[in-house]
Design a protein around this nucleic acid. Sequence first.
DNA 1: GTCTATATTTGGATAGAC
DNA 2: GTCTATCCAAATATAGAC
Lengths: 203, 203
Amino acid sequence: MNTQHHKKNTTKQKILKAATALFSEYGYKGTSVRKIASEIGIKQSALYNHFKNKENIFLEVSKDIFTTPFSFDDEEIKQNALKGKAFISKFAQQYKLLTFDKNSEKMFRLLMIELLQNRELREQFMSEFHDKNVKILAEGFFIMMQNSLVRSGDPMIMAYEFISTLFYIRLQVTLLRFDSKSTDMLSTQFEKHVDYFWESIKV
Amino acid sequence: MNTQHHKKNTTKQKILKAATALFSEYGYKGTSVRKIASEIGIKQSALYNHFKNKENIFLEVSKDIFTTPFSFDDEEIKQNALKGKAFISKFAQQYKLLTFDKNSEKMFRLLMIELLQNRELREQFMSEFHDKNVKILAEGFFIMMQNSLVRSGDPMIMAYEFISTLFYIRLQVTLLRFDSKSTDMLSTQFEKHVDYFWESIKV
DNA sequence: GTCTATATTTGGATAGAC
DNA sequence: GTCTATCCAAATATAGAC
């Protein structure tokens, strides 16, 4: 059984791990290949046996930014939307898990650091982070409206309102944790958001 | 009358203007002093007659990030809060103006670029961008609750919900404009947010 | 105040021995 | 695959003439 995909402790994997940590803390320009190499105890020139250049290391690292560990399929949305509040609650919980998950946190930091320096990341942010989530939520809200679980209105606007606050909480949490500050004040913010939001839309 | 503070077209002012444009597009590390100098037609070494070093140029530029052209005083809040929807509408309109104002846009971009690279900016973001706005809005909502204009609840949560969406819209608009893309889809998002939000809180 | 020249550092990348 | 050695480019900053 040598076909497992992940964590094959090769030098290449070690490089990627070190590079991820550094890029997500200091950004692309703030991270030197020398530093990446020294982190794993090899000389900088040895990196070039595994990657063509610095940019390729970054590309491989940033591939993971939008590979989210969870997602909804259409059937799941229909099932869950009928439960009303449980639907948005589950969505928010998964968003919260990502926010506090160590690896997802690094990827989110990297995204925010490079967002304005990298056009492709901006476009992926819009499609993967925004559009995709709005679509899922809007479908859920649409079904809820059909079943008179929530007041009628534009499901897209509702989804936009819901996701924007989730994003804002995540950003704030990420900033606080970056400085090793307490997130106590925000730890229940996801739940508060769900409660508030449900109160504002339920019939 | 030589006491006007602004735009005294001195070399120093020209440096600051060029530096602002470059920092807000390429970030601190992505901007060289050579580039700043060449933008205004002088040699790089001449910059050092006006600033001690690169960092000091940045500090002077970034001073303006949180100097907002509008603000509410306590009396104004009390007056406007009694008008209900007009209060949040006015707030959102001013937020929208900042979003599309050329200079404010540059400052916002600079903030987002350097947010995770600069601890002081993070702290100012929390206090000036978040806390201050939440405070103003929460005071308004509190007054509205006292006057039975909106449903009762935690004014802080309400304020948090309102500001988070404004921020998210601003971020999206900024990203689109950075790539010279159309913001048509978002041009009325501020108004939609106000309408949606008011519907969800009015009694 | 601006210029030329230069010192110094840092970083990306390659060549060739082992 | 890793090492040493080296190259090259770019960038910050300073010194001193004009």
